[in-house]
């Protein structure tokens, strides 16, 4: 394999898709974040922790500009990171993904990873806007969230390997097996310990836009990596043969 080309296209596709994710967040998630942080501010004023003064709003605006600007940079970093995982999995699974060109294969893999590493864990532990979330429980919530993602991802790999071992021609065994397994895990794992006290339309709108923006990432990384892989073929070596 051409290592430099492999690394370059994997990292570039992740960074570009992550940047698109950050831009999508700015466009569709940010209004909900502003609304939620507005509620936090009102709570601070009501409790006397802060005063509603021009000085407060000057500092607040500077602080929010830093966070909003960071959104795109954080998207690029997270995208490069998740893109790196996507590249690893694609390199190892490319030969077993459905027949077709690289774009078809990357979209198939992205769909599987979106479902097992993002959407199913999201259904159990959905994203929450600011105002929802107790600082005292953040470590517990992080452990639960990461554990669920790891169990879901490793479970999907394990059931695929199992279906290979029993030489099943159909993938249905691995799909059904994973479905039953993750349903049990879903039921057994403890819920998010924090109560949701924010307005439900805010929370639901935020969650819906969060899913859309993360999906933008997965579609983008699949399309970009699939296109670049098809163009540069990092896994192929071309030998010329001359017969006289």
């Amino acid at each position: 394999m051409k290592t430099i080309i492999f690394l370059t296209i994997v990292l570039v596709s992740g960074a570009l898709a992550g940047t698109l994710h950050g831009v999508a967040n700015l466009a569709i998630v940010e209004p909900y974040l502003d609304q939620a942080i507005g509620i936090e501010n009102q709570n601070l004023f009501a409790s006397g922790e802060e005063e509603d003064t021009p000085q407060f709003w000057v500092e607040y605006d500077a602080y929010r500009d830093w966070q909003k600007g960071g959104q795109v940079l954080a998207g690029a970093i997270l995208g490069t990171s998740i893109g790196a995982l996507f590249g690893i999995v694609y390199a190892f699974s490319r030969h077993v993904l459905p027949q077709g060109n690289d774009l078809k294969k990357t979209i198939t893999l992205a769909g599987i990873m979106w479902l097992t590493l993002f959407f199913i864990p999201f259904l159990k532990y959905p994203a929450n806007p600011p105002t929802v979330g107790d600082a005292e429980t953040v470590v517990l919530r992080a452990v639960l969230y990461l554990s669920f993602i790891a169990i879901s991802g490793l479970g999907a790999v394990a059931f695929y390997q199992l279906s290979k071992k029993i030489k099943s021609k159909s993938k249905i065994i691995s799909v059904v097996g994973y479905g039953i397994f993750i349903a049990i895990v879903f039921a057994l794992m403890p819920p998010n310990p924090d109560e949701v006290n924010a307005p439900l339309d805010l929370v639901n709108g935020f969650r819906a836009m969060s899913v859309v923006a993360v999906s933008v990432f997965w579609v983008s990384v699949a399309v970009i990596l699939g296109g670049l892989w098809h163009k540069f073929r990092p896994d192929s070596q071309i030998h010329s043969q001359n017969d006289m």
Binding site: S236, Q237, H239, D243
Partner: peptide, 26 residues
């Protein structure tokens, strides 16, 4: 003249580097 295209092995170094980038980024 003929051209043969073969698929080559995945370099462990590249996988290790990507794994480190994944963990650090997350």
């Amino acid at each position: 003249k003929g051209i043969t295209i073969t698929e080559s092995k995945i370099p462990i170094f590249a996988i290790a580097l990507l794994a480190v980038i994944f963990v650090l980024g997350v």
